[in-house]
Design a protein around this nucleic acid. Structure first.
Lengths: 134, 134
DNA sequence: TCCTTTACTTGAATCATTCAAGTGTGCTGC
DNA sequence: GCAGCACACTTGAATGATTCAAGTAAAGGA
């Protein structure tokens, strides 16, 4: 574990679901010039090692967080892309076992709630009651 | 609604969560040469119009299906990328309302179960019991 | 000391998707 | 019947996140 990789962990930990570019900037602030590829490589290594969790909302670049190993999901703002943690609705994820798994060997469930974050909501003036469907 | 767009609908309807390239091939089989961009454009239009649903699993190209407006999610095979429909575990999606929505105006919940499909499971010989965590 | 592994560098490639600009066709209103 | 217009479609180029490739350097083991 090198200084650069520690800096990545600290940056991700201190940030809020940062994307690779933001992590790269943060790492350079901490330890000086580091190549973008080193950041990609390290992020992959840290994720494989279970120290980071990857969040890949459709249509926006990958983000990372340090909160791993627990049961939580994400709210993603359609307008600004902000990602916010949200605990699983029902404790230890009963709704995350599909009724029929069609013979699949399921090892993970990804849940993403799409919507508008409070600031963007205020901006667009949307106030209708929310209802999550799928 | 042109012949090309009808062909897209029929192709997607007759296929199984096809990606753009496969849809393009199918459309060309039905109505002759159609540009890839026309397919992209039409798919977007059809999706905006609520006739198609987009599925965008992390790390693989976008796929489309005609099953819209109901409450179902997807199983995605980590090995071959196959996508399979799965009904929502608990009827009309109670688990899809996050406990705290952090002020977000939520309009949709995307759930993707990751695992191995039966053929890939047989290939790799994985047989341990499954448990979905998040 | 040699050898291997691993982190890192620079530079190029990939690939899905989008952007841009131009062409043809069908419909509307007169 | 014709001007005007919207829109589907075409070709060609651009974008942008991510990965691949090849080489260098430093660390650790035998």
């Amino acid at each position: 574990m090198t200084a650069a990789r520690l800096a990545i962990l600290h940056t991700v930990d201190g940030g809020d679901h940062l994307d690779v570019e933001a992590i790269h900037r943060g790492v350079c602030d901490r330890v000086g010039q580091v190549s973008l590829q080193a950041v990609y490589d390290s992020l992959n290594a840290l994720q494989r090692g279970g120290l980071l969790r990857r969040i890949e909302p459709a249509g926006s670049p990958t983000r990372y967080e340090t909160r791993v190993g627990d049961n939580h999901h994400h709210l993603v703002c359609r307008s600004c892309g902000r990602v916010t943690d949200v605990d699983c609705a029902v404790g230890h994820a009963p709704c995350l076992e599909p009724v029929s798994d069609a013979g699949y060997l399921v090892d993970e469930a990804d849940v993403i709630y799409w919507g508008l974050c409070p600031p963007c909501r205020a901006e667009t003036g949307s106030a209708q009651p929310h209802s999550a469907h799928a």
